[in-house]
């Protein structure tokens, strides 16, 4: 019966250790910088328009065909405030289909798309699957508010030049504490 006693000692020893679970909605585990939640579009704060030109490279590369992109002429190029000749017109991503493979980020020529690495991208339960189809405004919202610091290797460095306050807010949101 020594084996039985050994089992009981093992369980006794784990009783002495700290719990490994946590109070989930209140206490988030810090999530790593490279976290890949769902793809988001980035906002060019310098010119005040999206980086995305609607070139559809991501749409073609998407393995589960969850994206729909259209392009239009950029009116601000005519005004002379922007260098982009074309700009995204509409952009839908069906988060219900997306499999978070990161390929869209890799193929993007303009570093216009990034994976959401904050908690906002993880808790996305919805009552209706249509609520998971995100349109252009929803995709840009987080970046426009300065709430995302994309990982440098996903997107170019220049996309990370965000206002410091926004960076701070994003880090808090991501459970990483103030910078």
């Amino acid at each position: 019966m020594l084996g039985v006693l050994r089992s009981m000692l093992t369980t006794l020893s784990t009783t002495m250790r700290r719990p490994v679970t946590r109070q989930y909605p209140e206490s988030h585990r810090p999530i790593p910088e490279r976290e890949r939640a769902f793809p988001l579009l980035l906002w060019d704060h310098g010119v005040d328009e999206p980086y995305c030109t609607g070139c559809q490279a991501c749409e073609r590369a998407c393995p589960c065909k969850c994206m729909t992109v259209t392009m239009k002429d950029n009116p601000r190029q005519a005004e002379g405030t922007s260098k982009r000749r074309k700009i995204v017109d509409t952009f839908w991503i069906d988060y219900g289909r997306c499999m978070r493979c990161n390929i869209c980020v890799e193929v993007c020529n303009f570093d216009a798309i990034a994976m959401n690495n904050t908690w906002t991208g993880i808790e996305l339960s919805a009552y209706d699957r249509h609520d998971l189809v995100m349109d252009l405004d929803e995709l840009l919202a987080l970046s426009r508010a300065g709430g995302i610091v994309p990982w440098a290797e996903y997107v170019g460095e220049e996309n990370q030049k965000l206002p410091p306050r926004a960076v701070q807010a994003a880090r808090t949101l991501a459970g990483r504490g103030p910078a």
């Binding site: 019966m1 020594l2 084996g3 039985v4 050994r6 089992s7 000692l9 093992t10 369980t11 020893s13």
Partner: peptide, 9 residues
């Protein structure tokens, strides 16, 4: 410790 030598297991 939990399983390997446990007689019941």
């Amino acid at each position: 410790g939990l399983l390997t030598r446990n007689e019941i297991f």
